[in-house]
Structures are given as C-alpha cells and as structure tokens.
Write a protein that binds this DNA or RNA. Sequence first.
DNA 1: AAGTGGTCTAGACCACGTT
DNA 2: ACGTGGTCTAGACCACTTT
Lengths: 242, 242
Amino acid sequence: MAKYHAIADSVRAAIAGGHYPLGSRLPGERKLSQEYGVAPGTIRQALAELVTEGALASRQGSRKIVMGVSEKTGTFAEFRSFAQWAWSRGRTPSGQVISAQWQVATSYDREQLRIDAGRVYSVLRIRGLDGEPTMVERTRYSPRVGERVEQIPDDCASVTIWLADEAAIVFARAEHRFSACSASAEDARHLQVRRGAPLLSHHRISFDQNGTPLEWSEDRYIAGGVSLVVGNSTNSNVLRWA
Amino acid sequence: MAKYHAIADSVRAAIAGGHYPLGSRLPGERKLSQEYGVAPGTIRQALAELVTEGALASRQGSRKIVMGVSEKTGTFAEFRSFAQWAWSRGRTPSGQVISAQWQVATSYDREQLRIDAGRVYSVLRIRGLDGEPTMVERTRYSPRVGERVEQIPDDCASVTIWLADEAAIVFARAEHRFSACSASAEDARHLQVRRGAPLLSHHRISFDQNGTPLEWSEDRYIAGGVSLVVGNSTNSNVLRWA
DNA sequence: AAGTGGTCTAGACCACGTT
DNA sequence: ACGTGGTCTAGACCACTTT
C-alpha cells in the first residue's frame, strides 16, 4: 500500500476516533510531514484524498478544517454493480433473467456502443433486495461482451465479477444519467407496483480501460428503495448509493 | 491562472480539436514536460485534472488514453444554484417565492443544521425554465443565513450570488441525495401536474468553507425536465446537470 | 509579521504494460 | 528490454489567512 494512502487512512481514523474533533483545524502540512517522517508532498497527496471525500475543507492560507468522515464512500465497482453494492450494505441481492436474446442493433445502440452494424445481446433482468423486487434492468451488450454474457451460468451472482475473472473484461468507467419516470405496464408487472408509479431511472454506459463501450443499460428503481448520494465542493465530487 | 490549469485547458482543446484523436494515446509525461517547458510534476497535475473529468483514462505503465471531452462539466456553483445552472445552459430561469417565514426548528432541522434550538427561516419557491414550472423548492435556512435571506429583494436573480456579494456567505460544499417520489397535492398544484405524478427528489445540505451548515432543502423536479449526469471511474467521480 | 496552503522545480526508484 | 505512469524526496517562492 502506498504511503500516502496509509497516511490518509491514519488521519481518517484519527478523525473518526475524535482525536481531531469536528470543526477543529488539522496540524500544518510541515508539522505532519515531520510526525509521519515523510516529505511534505506525500502529506499533501494524503490530505488531497480526504479533501476529495469531503472529510476536510481546504482554503489557501488556513489550516485544513475537519468536516467529519462520511459513511464509507462507495467504490466504483459498488456503484456500478447492483450485487456488489447490495453486499456492501449488508443486504442480500437476488436476480432473475426474464429474457435474453440477440437483436439487430438500433441506431441508438450503434451510437452508444460505437459499433458499425450487426447485433447486440439484449437482456431483461429483475433484481431484488432481501426478496423484495426493487429494480428492472434492461441492458444491451456489445457483441464482444454479449458472447461472453451468453455463457454465464444462470446462478452466477455477479455478472461484473464473472466477466472480469473469466473473460478479462473489466469495467473501468461509466456515465450515469438519473431522472424520474412513470412505471410502464411491463415495469408495473415485474415490480409489483401500479402502472404510472414513480420510478428512479438510471441510464448507464460502461467502458473498459481503453475507452471502448461495453454495454448500455436503463435501470428503473422503485421509489423509496434506494437513493443516490452525491457530495460535491468547489474542488470535487464524490458519489455513492445509500 | 496556474500553469497546470492552463496546460489542462490546452490539452482539452487539443482533444476537442481532434489533434489527439479519440481512443489514441497521449504523449508520455516526460515528452509533454519538454514540449511545455515545465517540470514533470506540473504535467502530472494537469493530466490528473483531465483524468478526474473522465477525458483521459489512466493505467500504470501505459500512456494515457483519450476518452473525449464531455460537454462542459458543471462547476460546483452551477450544480448548487438553479439560476446559475439555467444560465449556463442558455435557458431562462424564473422564480417565485410562495411563502417565507420564521418557524420553530424541528428536531430534523436542528440535526441537519447543527443548531441547538431556536428558529429557521423557511422558504417555499417555485422555479421555472423558459416560463414552464419545473421545480418546487422547500428550503430551511439557519438563523444566520435566514436573517440575510429576509433582506433579499424580490427581483433578485440568484440567492447564492447575492449572499456571496452582499453578506460574504459562501457556499463551499454540499451533500445531495436523489430519489423518485410522487407529487403531493401541493406539488401538483404548483407544478401543474396530476397528483401522484413522478418527480425527481433532490435533497441537499450546503456548508460554508468552515464546514458550518447553511441550509437544507428538498427540491422536486418534474419528470423529463432535467436529469442528473454523473461520470465515474475507478479513480473518481464527476457530476453535472443535463 | 508570521504561519500556512498552493504551486512549481528537478530529480529518484519501482511496478507495470508494451514490444 | 524498454518505456511509462505511480510514488516519493527535498527543497523553493508566492498568495492568502491569521495573529
């Protein structure tokens, strides 16, 4: 583990433990670099991590102010994968594939996935938390990914983890779009809500490390089930589910 | 303007202009530091900005890959202020205060705003885009802020800007929570939708540079009007309205 | 006036990806 | 084997806040 990351953990723990009270000012960077026996730059990098999280407030010329540590900020993987998110919150995810088939790519598919023509692998899934239906997920995989998704056993817990381990397909970046929508007849049937009920729509495009699109998806969550949490400041933004 | 920021702008422009094609690999950091005549660390800082935005993908050992520049990423101010966001998107915001009054702080108010007792200034606003009602906003200001909000003239375009200029109250950080909800009878009346219509709920707490809570608010947007856009990667998260 | 963070320099070594 | 990014060092000067 990198020094700066270990130091960030240490400071985070000191805040959580009340050693640096909420609202107080952190020691100066030069002081901390002596305490930890590292170069000033390493301390800067450690504190930058905490500023990004919102645990510290930063103003030029003034010592950093303790804002308090937030509940564990979701990692990228947790944010992208329903299963990983659910487990990290101590809840039991369930999932069921309603339909899965190859379809001719629409112009929207081609644009989003940046493919010339051909087909996409289209999957409709229902996902639940602790047995309650929570979300309906409509995903289009690009051909390369779809060929692998097809092989995934039905009882696989997490598509994301399976693809990484078995097919070396790694999700590295995603763009998300959130809005409200009404439940369609199909949504209502699967989620056991009335038609027209309010849903949180989560539109997502995922990319690998080379920037190649892997899939796009529209997930629809029942109201009250989950919510998206975002922290932002003049410098940065951090988000997580809650 | 800092060198590293100017360099980030320059690289961003080079990507947008097609000089670094989408999917290609950026020159190495040492090469760039020579080109720009700065130390390697300065280049690193510039590229870190672009990685955070999602414009570049980064893997140790490999040159950075061009992901493409997203439409202008919203600044913190734009994300926090409806008026500033609207202007930045070339739309005309309107606003109307329905009611404004001092109220006894509830236990929820006291917890969120970290005040011992007393009162909060409670404001109900309707906001619109290009004349169409778009959002209903229910805000509770802490006493210190409420006293100034009370003085704001009715025709003030942006509360955020007014408070910064006239009262030196600066919003520096905020936490946001998004979910779906149904329009209440009051919501429906103000937004001219049917009762029970799907709305996007945006719950927000704002802080100043010292970490002191300034206000909390629940905004409810009509479906289809606006949506929240978030980009995230293994390293970072960036969000904006769209 | 003194202290502090923000920026910048000019290197070094290591882990990892590419060739 | 080589190139590259990730990490780290040990300083310097400036802008800003605090005292």
